[in-house]
Design a protein around this nucleic acid. Structure first.
Lengths: 340, 340
DNA sequence: TTATATTGGGTAATCGATTGCATAAAAATA
DNA sequence: TATTTTTATGCAATCGATTACCCAATATAA
């Protein structure tokens, strides 16, 4: 096993010092054009590769960023991560992805673990409402930038990239109303998380604006799982006055709802319309395709990454807080297309 | 911003040397019980955290491992990664996930990039048959362990964890035969990748063993995408003698097949049976649930991680090559349940 | 009592790259 | 020609932790 070549090897070969070699490789302007070229060519020849660990130790930058998501096997998060990678890779960063599986201890554990790995920043989507803000203090103390995407929390000095959930929900609900639905239920998620609260608010506002009553018994909160969607929908259907539409803040619960409704012998969209949220691929691929709200995840990831880059490059001098809000898009499909 | 405490700070406070502190923290047996305790308590008090970058530089170990997958928004890969994490996290490792999106240049790019980040090992599922084995030479030269999972390639000295694809396909096909199907088509994928070749072989062997002819025009290779499944199935259905069953080596193409079949007004499973591969969650959640082959991805990930740990801990002394093969399980569901 | 072991811990080099400061040589200016 | 400025490079410390080697003090053996 031949040792890796270091700048010392290059220096020795060229009768220079490591310092000069280092500068030449970094295109330091204090180095003459000729030696710079010479060094760079020799480096190439000798198959030199920078030791990132040494660079990291000296500079205090690891060129790793942590990404914390509830799970990565949803198209939404996978796409956000893809967007982040697309933006960060060309800058020499690597991405360490951690899944929390919605467990609070994993959430705090992951953050500390990433911190311990000396990441240069953390991009995250909060999964658990119970996670204390205190967890982030470690981050702040170490001046490690934190950027929220999608599921954010309002913390002073922390930037975020989200979509306009209120508006997305508003449009979705309005669409249902325009289809003639009068009694629209809402399959909600943990509303101590902003996004779900906002979707709920948007839903409510749309009802109000169109003169429909807002029956709180038609709003039920649950986990974003297919089976949960089924369970709650069963409850809906057993009401004296069951809903004629369901607006779900998750595609997975929307899917469960559809299964349950069909099992009850009801027709979609004729008897009940269903709208989901996130535009997961399966909503498009189902035989009965599902209307959903697209969140442009790749762009969300890219922008989050850009905000991160701005913050690290600002070098702690400037404390900035950006709140970027993207506009969602309603994708109308069969599950809610009552009218021709 | 208070500086991080280092072992020097602790040393100074206790009137010791950094060496002693380091040893005490690492439970070196050359340190007396009393000072060891003293140091460890003081470290705790002073909020000491090891600088992983320094440790990495000195030891040459980054405690990062790279995981390269075609994509991570499939439940299969996400679950494998989860298994890997579960095994590696407790050992202090972090996981850097890279997606290749089936692009060759991304595949080689990712490997080099991970190498550059000085990962201690790479676990990967090959995505592109065109990727030259040459790419791995860099790995070998640096003695970075490489472990294949699922999609492997036969390379001397490289361990792998896979399932018995041949057997999985054999059982799936046998099941179709037992349901009375006589003309079974095979939606295949790139057979220059072992797993797909093996699935094809298992399919073929099952036909042979049960006295059915193997019509090569019923075997078509395509990408693992829903739309591709549709496209090929359309071809199948337009044949003079269309198949009465489709065994797909991917759940996604199986889904496409189902859509197309229904659109043609045919009934599943009465007219045509369909079986997929991977046991993606949606196969279970579809109204018409899809029979599929489970690959126990979490276990696959865990085992791959264990193999990696064995290899690094063996410290390059022993060169070992393990080939671990898990047994798949056929999950029979509606899409192929012709018989009561 | 003297010689030998053992225990506990210090010294200093090392991992590879970066960078503030110093300086010789070359160029520009007086 | 003498002096100042500029240019190109070297010197050495530094980032924080680890470890081979050395040595004093105590314990054990002869």
């Amino acid at each position: 096993m031949k040792k890796k070549t270091t700048i010392y090897d290059i220096a020795e070969k060229l009768n220079l010092t490591a310092a000069t070699v280092s500068r030449a490789l970094n295109n330091n302007e204090k180095i003459s054009e000729s030696t710079r070229k010479l060094v760079q060519e020799t480096a190439l020849e000798m198959n030199y590769e920078q030791n990132t660990l040494a660079r990291a130790l000296k500079s205090g930058k690891s060129y790793n960023v942590g990404v914390v998501v509830p799970r990565m096997d949803s198209n939404f998060f996978a796409s956000v991560i893809r967007g982040i990678e697309e933006e960060l890779y060309p800058q020499g960063y690597h991405v360490i992805v951690c899944q929390t599986h919605d467990q609070e201890n994993l959430e705090t554990g992951n953050i500390n673990s990433l911190l311990n790995a000396q990441v240069d920043g953390i991009l995250m989507s909060i999964s658990n409402a119970k996670t204390k803000n205190k967890v982030f203090n470690n981050l702040f103390a170490k001046h490690v930038p934190l950027i929220f995407f999608d599921r954010k929390r309002d913390i002073d000095g922390v930037s975020s990239v989200t979509i306009d959930d209120f508006n997305g929900a508003y449009e979705a609900t309005k669409h249902l109303i325009q289809q003639g639905c009068k009694r629209i239920a809402h399959l909600s998620n943990d509303r101590s998380l902003e996004i779900f609260k906002n979707r709920y608010m948007g839903y409510k506002q749309a009802l109000l604006d169109h003169g429909l009553e807002c029956d709180e018994s038609l709003v039920i909160e649950t986990a974003s799982k297919v089976d949960e969607g089924r369970r709650i929908t069963k409850q809906f259907l057993s009401m004296e006055r069951p809903p004629d539409a369901i607006f779900s803040s998750s595609d997975f619960t929307a899917l469960g709802a559809i299964q349950e409704i069909k099992e009850h012998g009801l027709k979609i969209p004729e008897d009940i319309c269903v709208v989901g949220f996130s535009n997961e691929p399966f909503t498009r691929f189902m035989e009965l395709s599902i209307t959903s709200v697209d969140q442009s995840p790749i762009e969300m990831g890219r922008i989050a990454a850009q905000v991160f880059l701005e913050e690290v490059n600002n070098g702690k001098k400037i404390k900035m807080q950006k709140q970027i809000v993207l506009t969602p898009e309603l994708m109308v499909r069969k599950s809610s297309s009552k009218l021709k």
